[in-house]
Design a protein around this nucleic acid. Structure first.
Lengths: 159, 159
DNA sequence: CTCACAGTTTAGAACGGTTCTAATGCGTTG
DNA sequence: CAACGCATTAGAACCGTTCTAAACTGTGAG
């Protein structure tokens, strides 16, 4: 599946391309494909954000950190759109929301079975693979309730 | 240790007492003792809030729910004081803060080893005794970090 | 018992993250 | 290419929480 295949659509939003033009196109093409697959219209903003989020390894972002990052990449995306996009991606199963801090929402690009270290001093998350960790002895939930998810947060501090 | 022992101090803030005057005094006396023991000055507001919090079994409150409750008990305590008090009690080890919801803080009167069910539909917490539940396979924390606490949240939804 | 000090409470303003609004922009389909 | 409907945006609104500065009160000394 070469990136050129979708070029007729994405080329319309032309922007100056440097030496890493090919990589950029790859990224955009992959992001676009991923969005289409998730049933989301590949708008300029969503493609840009998806490119940042799903480019490398697993990532943990807040709305603000992602907004800063996309701005630093020289693209203008409103904060409202970042919020909308994070929620849409979450709804589409592309992201998972992680609740570890009362005052900020984190989003995780790793949607598989895993848990987290939370570095309270820095507000930073680190994945713990699901194979490593196990929770046993969970009582059966109250009548009429079903377990949605079991979240483990290992809170660590500077020793 | 009869409640009358401390009456010379507490009687100064006299208020009309109904048929459950004795119970009320017991409650207030116990709350006062608890506060003194924790190194907190037993003010009218703190005694009142401690009375509500530590009266029965284990409880889970939010600032707002506790504020409503104390108001309904006919006592006027400002919301700021409720927040102050919850934080002071937490600092003194009388409460534990539970982070399960991005938009509200919960406080738990059970400070022992245990975990929680979180009923997402109702925003309600239920304790899971520490003996019942076990987490194994937690990797060693990043260098220079020490585990502060391991939190398990079993999120349940209406089946 | 009274005084005075330090810690506490309070109303209301301020704050910060998030969501809403209504107008404009843009992807898609025909 | 036109037009429809979803997406984006700036800014206001929102809401839980924290801050501020002034009034109050528990406490220990005299």
């Amino acid at each position: 599946m070469g990136p050129a295949r979708q070029a007729n659509h994405t080329d319309r939003n032309k922007r100056p391309m440097g030496k890493d033009a090919t990589e950029s196109r790859d990224l955009a093409a992959m992001a676009t494909a991923r969005l289409r697959h998730a049933g989301l219209r590949p708008t300029r903003q969503r493609v840009e954000l998806a490119g940042l989020l799903f480019q490398d390894c697993d990532r943990h972002v807040t709305a603000e950190s992602l907004h800063d990052e996309v701005a630093q990449a020289g693209v203008k995306v409103s904060l409202a759109t970042v919020y909308n996009t994070l929620h849409q991606f979450t709804g589409a199963g592309l992201l998972r929301q992680v609740i570890v801090d009362a005052s900020r929402s984190y989003f995780d690009t790793n949607t598989g079975d895993h848990q987290h270290f939370f570095l309270e001093d820095e507000g930073m998350l680190i994945d713990i693979p699901g194979e490593h960790i196990a929770v046993s002895g969970v009582p059966s939930p109250p009548a009429g309730m079903a377990v949605d998810r079991v979240d483990v947060v290992v809170r660590v501090k500077r020793a």
